[in-house]
Structure formats: structure tokens, C-alpha cells
Nucleic acid binder design. Structure first.
Length: 587
RNA sequence: GCCGUUGUAGCUCAGUGGUAGAGCACGUCCUUGGUAAGGACGAGGCCAUGGGUUCAAUCCCCAUCAACGGCUCCA
């Protein structure tokens, strides 16, 4: 006998995931009403809303979404009670005879787990549960987009149509979320990158390949210099390795065996096969191997802004954050097993220092272990080093089973940006495997040869990706130490041109990135232009300033959103000192 | 790669079966102006590419290319 299950009694508010899961049912109900030919498949709650995948020949149009949304609001207003009942497997399969997807799901529910059907109004769905008690709990919702998606995410399966939506307790929350989306759109690094003339991707050159324009390149240099100084302080030695090397190198390293699907194909020259480098490690290993090494030489720390090329399917390319050619702030440490822990912890500290310098405060850590089939006996040692380092710094972390590199487990560091989005940045990996594959060794104090342990680390990760994240994090309002132009001198009229050039030259000589606006426009126009370009300081010079050897400082809002100082007239040297202090303080 | 959407001037976008328009940007001139858009004139387009339908295609059809939203969230 089927047994009626009622959703548990709840305090006033339905948890958001349950509310959103309910909204997915409401969507499927509306689709059933308006598009009876569409077969519902699965529809879970997701981070900010929900989706539901349907199998239907004709695509859903934006107009269809509007109609569906209207129907959904009626279903919400009707406040149908969500009722569930447990059924037998045979019953469930029979119930979804017309829907092979649901039937497949029903057949695959593990023995012993209850099979349940949930109903709102005239719509019944196979579902595990976890809902609001009634559709009226959905305070506000909106359908956002429609996209293709494979059945169960597998590209060998049929393509379904996925409708995305968002749902909240209140209209105010929905509106806040929509404002957040708008803000994210405003900060989109592809849009800002074009507006601020930082970089481009050229159709003639191909997708996923970045052209850094003068403004972007000068910012990149500022970031690189900062990273370089840190590396130098911590005993890293810069090295440079070729972009194209003989394929044999990647046979030895195991890249051809384990990483070939991410590599560009071979280049043939004089019957020899070469490859674009997908990683810098084999090159650094060759440098290690070039001399006999003693334990007294270790740890050796080789660093390189190494440009690598990886094949990504055309559909996944995205601005600066998913590209085919990028430069890592890469380094490889070669150390003795005894040194591993200390080196790893130091590397972790460097990573945090770097993130803080760029204004990131919120971090998450994930330990990725290696895939079962690749695991070797040293993996537990490597994982242990990562765990101990995290524990010694009292950092909580998550675990990604099987997400590690093919040569070892890794620690990935995620940051939250100014509007709360999570991005993966640095990665630190422990490797006992490549030293063996390349037969690396060092002479120990016992007079015997031993294999070193390697740490692979890229703290900003890819400079392209890091740069994209910085653009979105700051919304283009870069702190002065990174800003492509730190100040612009704006003469009020041509009569101040000579003085303006003098100011520009004085500041330029001190090493600032400074421009001058000699265009034949009114002051208001010029101010607007440079504000739009988000330049930190506009130095207005007119008759008074020229007479007094001063500049009138018009300051942009600060990166953190703090109010800028009042406009003020100060001596050129005073301004220079202030700008220098801000640059030094990375403010 | 697959599904969907889009492709018109440097940028943002109108538009029509009879080979094109606006705003911004750009150039010249007037103007020499005190803190987010002064005015006039001008230049600029193989309407993504290749086929087809038609007397005629930027527009309709097909293919290709590219960009964008997704394809990880498992009843």
C-alpha cells in the first residue's frame, strides 16, 4: 500500500535549496501545461536558483520563457501543497512509461532506497524529496536563460534543453540578486578589457590567444615585477626555457601518456617531432639534471614566467580566464625529503602574502588527491605534507578526490573577489614521480645518491587568468601601483600647455606612469574622459597652478569603494610624495 | 566538439527584397573654456564568408567561420 508522506513541519522559512528545488517542480508543471510534448528529466536546485532539463524537439524561445514564467506565478499563487508517496519500483517505471529518462532514473535507484513521487496540483514527479511544503513558499522567482545540456552531462547522450531560473523568499532578495548580476556584468573583464584598452583576442589569430595592449602590458609588468621581487627575496633563481621542444622530452615526463589530450599536436621539422610546451616542469628538470647535485645545493628553486600552450575545446574558451596560451608564475623546488615540509609551508605563506597584496581576504583550500589508477606508494607522503602544512597554519580545507595532477597530489587555493565570487588561483603540488622518471638524484651526506622531491608551484596561476580576476575584483578601479596610467595632467587651455609638459616630465622622471591630455576639448570633457578610463589621479593645471608651481588633484574613488579626498591644490613634489607613498603601500 | 542565440562603420546598435543609417570614437576648423559630454563640417561599411532562390539579396534558404550563454550541480 502506498503510504502518504507529508513534508516535515518547518519553522517560518523554507531553506533556499528546498525552495529552489520546489521552483524546479513548478517549472516542470508549467512546461507540462504549456508544452505537453516536452519530457521532463531532472531538475535540481543550484547555487543561486534551479534548472530543469527537458527533452523536446523544438527549442524554447525567450517568448516561451515569458509564458512559462507567467504560468509559474499562477502555480505559486495557487499555493499547491507538495505531497509525496512511496511507490514500488515497478509502479514508478510503469508510471513513466512515456518518459525513458524518468524510467531510467527509477530503474537505477539503489535497492533499499525508497522510491517516491511528489505531486503539486496536477503535476507528479519522480523525486527524492526536499521541498517546501507548498508552492506558495516561493516568494519571488524568474527564469533566466535556456541552454543545451547533455543527458547526465555526457556528450554521447542526447542533448536536452535546460531552462535556468532563480528563486528567493522575497521580491527584495530577487532584486538584490538581479542587481548582483548586473554588477558582475559591469565588471566583466572582457568588457572592461576593451573599454580600458588593456587586451584583445583577435579573430585572425585564433581563440584563446591574448594580445596585451600597451595599457594591459604595463600593468602586467607591474604585477610581474612585484612577483619577481618576492621570488628573489625567497631565494628563487630565474631560469628561461624554450617554448618548443622535442617530443621525446614529454615521453620521458609522461605528458604524452597522461596529458596528450590537453596538448597541441606535433610540429614536424626535418623528420623530428616537436611540441609546444604545456608545462614548464620538464624544462626545469633538464636544468637540474645538467650538473651533479649535492645535498648541500638543495633546496634549489627555479622560477620562470613560463608561457605554456594547452589545447582547450573551442566552446570552453572564455576571455582571459580560459585560454589556449598563458604565462604562469611558475617555479619548481628540488629538495630533500627532510626539507619538504618546510619548503611547502614557506610556499603556502608566499601564496597568502601574494593574495593579500592584491586585496584578496577570503580564501578556501582544496587538497586534490590523485586518480586511483595513477596512485603510487609515495602519494600518502605527499598528501601528508600538504595536510600538515594546512594544519600548521590552522587552515580548513576541502578534499577533491582524484583531482590531482598526474604526477602527484596538489593544493589549490581559491579566493573570493570583491563581490563574493570564488575563483581558483594558485596551486602547489608535491611530486615524487617526475624525479624518478627523469632519474634525478643528489649526493647525500652518506655518500649515496638519492632522488630529490619536487614542489611545483604557481601562485597567481596563469597571469592571464589572474589579470582577468583582478579586473573584475577591482571593477577596473585599479590601485595606483597597478593602474596602467597613474595620473594624467590636464591643462585647462593651451596657455598652460608648457607648464603641463613640465609637470608631466617631472613626474615621468620619477618613474610614474603619467600622461598628458593636450586635446582641444573643454575641461569638463577631458575630466569625463579620464574618469571613464578610471585613472586614479587627474592633475588639473590652469593659470593659478602654473603661477604657483602646483597641481589641482582630482581623485578617483578608491579601489575599496572609499570616498576620494576632496579636490585640492598642492605642490608637484607634494603630490609626487603622496603618489609614491600610495604605490609603496599598495593602496 | 555539441545545443541555442548573435554577426551591419573602430565601439554600441537601428534598418529595408531595389547595393545603408544613428550616437559615441576619429579628422579639420571655430572656440581658450576651472572639474563627468561646446559648435560646425568631414572621412569611414564587400552589411562575417561561400553557395542558392530571385529581374534584383545586407534582408529569404543552405553551408562555413567567429563570438556569446550553457554542456560540473544528478529522481
Amino acid at each position: 500500500m502506498p503510504r502518504v508522506i507529508s513534508e516535515p513541519e518547518r519553522p517560518s522559512r523554507t531553506p533556499l535549496p528546498e525552495l529552489r528545488h520546489t521552483a524546479a517542480h513548478v517549472l516542470a508543471y508549467a512546461v507540462q501545461d504549456l508544452f505537453p510534448d516536452a519530457k521532463p528529466t531532472i531538475g535540481p536546485a543550484i547555487e543561486n536558483g534551479f534548472y530543469y532539463d527537458f527533452d523536446r524537439a523544438a527549442p524554447f524561445t525567450p517568448e516561451d520563457l515569458e509564458r512559462l514564467e507567467k504560468r509559474m506565478l499562477e502555480i505559486v499563487a495557487a499555493n499547491y501543497e507538495m505531497t509525496g508517496r512511496q511507490v514500488t519500483r515497478a509502479e514508478a517505471v510503469a508510471r513513466f512509461e512515456e518518459n525513458p529518462y524518468k524510467a531510467e532514473l527509477a530503474r537505477e535507484i539503489p535497492e533499499g532506497e525508497p522510491i517516491t513521487l511528489y505531486t503539486i496540483g496536477a503535476f507528479t514527479d519522480l523525486c527524492r524529496g526536499g521541498h517546501a511544503s507548498a508552492t506558495g513558499a516561493i516568494g519571488a522567482m524568474k527564469l533566466t536563460s535556456v541552454a543545451g545540456a547533455y543527458w547526465r552531462g555526457d556528450e554521447h547522450n542526447p542533448m536536452l534543453q535546460r531552462i535556468y531560473g532563480t528563486a528567493w523568499h522575497t521580491q527584495a532578495e530577487l532584486e538584490a540578486y538581479l542587481r548582483f548580476l548586473e554588477e558582475a556584468q559591469k565588471r566583466d573583464h572582457r568588457k572592461l578589457g576593451a573599454e580600458l584598452d588593456l587586451f584583445s583576442i583577435e579573430e585572425e589569430a585564433g581563440g584563446g590567444l591574448i594580445f596585451w595592449h600597451p595599457r594591459g602590458a604595463v600593468m602586467r609588468a607591474a604585477v610581474e615585477n612585484f612577483i619577481r621581487d618576492g621570488l628573489r627575496e625567497r631565494g628563487y633563481q630565474p631560469v628561461v626555457t624554450p617554448h618548443v621542444v622535442h617530443e621525446k622530452l614529454y615521453e620521458i615526463s609522461g605528458h604524452l601518456e597522461n596529458y596528450a589530450e590537453n596538448m597541441f599536436g606535433p610540429l614536424e621539422v626535418e623528420e623530428q617531432r616537436f611540441r609546444l610546451k604545456p608545462m614548464n616542469c620538464p624544462g626545469h628538470i633538464l636544468i637540474y639534471k645538467g650538473h651533479p647535485r649535492s645535498y648541500r645545493d638543495l633546496p634549489l628553486r627555479f622560477s620562470e614566467f613560463g608561457t605554456v600552450y594547452r589545447y582547450e575545446r573551442s566552446g570552453v574558451l572564455h576571455g582571459l580566464t580560459r585560454v589556449r596560451g598563458f604565462t604562469q608564475d611558475d617555479a619548481h623546488l628540488f629538495c630533500t625529503p627532510d626539507q619538504l615540509q618546510g619548503e611547502f609551508e614557506q610556499t603556502l605563506d608566499e601564496a597568502l602574502r601574494l593574495m593579500h597584496a592584491f586585496g584578496f581576504e577570503d580564501f578556501e583550500y582544496f587538497l586534490s588527491t590523485r586518480e586511483a589508477k595513477l596512485r603510487v606508494e609515495t602519494d600518502p607522503l605527499a598528501e601528508e605534507a600538504i595536510r600538515k602544512a594546512l594544519q600548521s597554519r590552522a587552515l580548513p580545507y576541502g578534499i577533491d578526490e582524484g583531482g590531482g595532477a598526474f604526477y602527484g597530489p596538489k593544493l589549490d587555493i581559491y579566493v573570493r573577489d570583491a563581490i563574493g565570487r570564488k575563483w581558483q588561483l594558485g596551486t602547489v603540488q608535491v611530486d615524487f614521480v617526475l624525479p624518478k622518471r627523469f632519474d634525478l638524484h643528489y649526493r647525500g651526506s652518506d655518500g649515496q645518491d638519492h632522488p630529490p622531491v619536487m614542489i611545483h608551484r604557481a601562485l597567481a596561476g596563469s597571469l592571464e587568468r589572474f589579470f582577468g580576476i583582478l579586473i573584475e575584483h577591482f571593477g577596473g578601479n585599479f590601485p595606483a601601483w597597478i593602474a596602467p596610467v597613474q595620473a594624467v595632467v590636464v591643462p585647462i587651455s593651451e596657455h598652460q600647455q608648457e607648464y603641463a609638459r613640465e609637470v608631466r616630465d617631472r613626474l615621468f622622471t620619477r618613474g610614474f606612469r603619467i600622461e598628458i591630455d593636450e586635446s582641444n576639448e573643454k575641461l569638463g570633457y577631458k575630466i569625463r574622459r579620464w574618469k571613464t578610463q578610471k585613472i586614479p589621479y587627474i592633475l588639473v593645471v590652469g593659470k593659478q597652478e602654473a603661477a604657483g608651481g602646483t597641481v589641482n588633484v582630482n581623485e578617483r574613488a578608491l579601489a575599496g569603494g572609499a570616498e576620494p579626498a576632496e579636490k585640492r591644490t598642492i605642490a608637484v613634489d607634494t603630490f609626487a610624495a603622496e603618489l609614491q607613498a600610495r604605490i609603496d603601500g599598495k593602496a
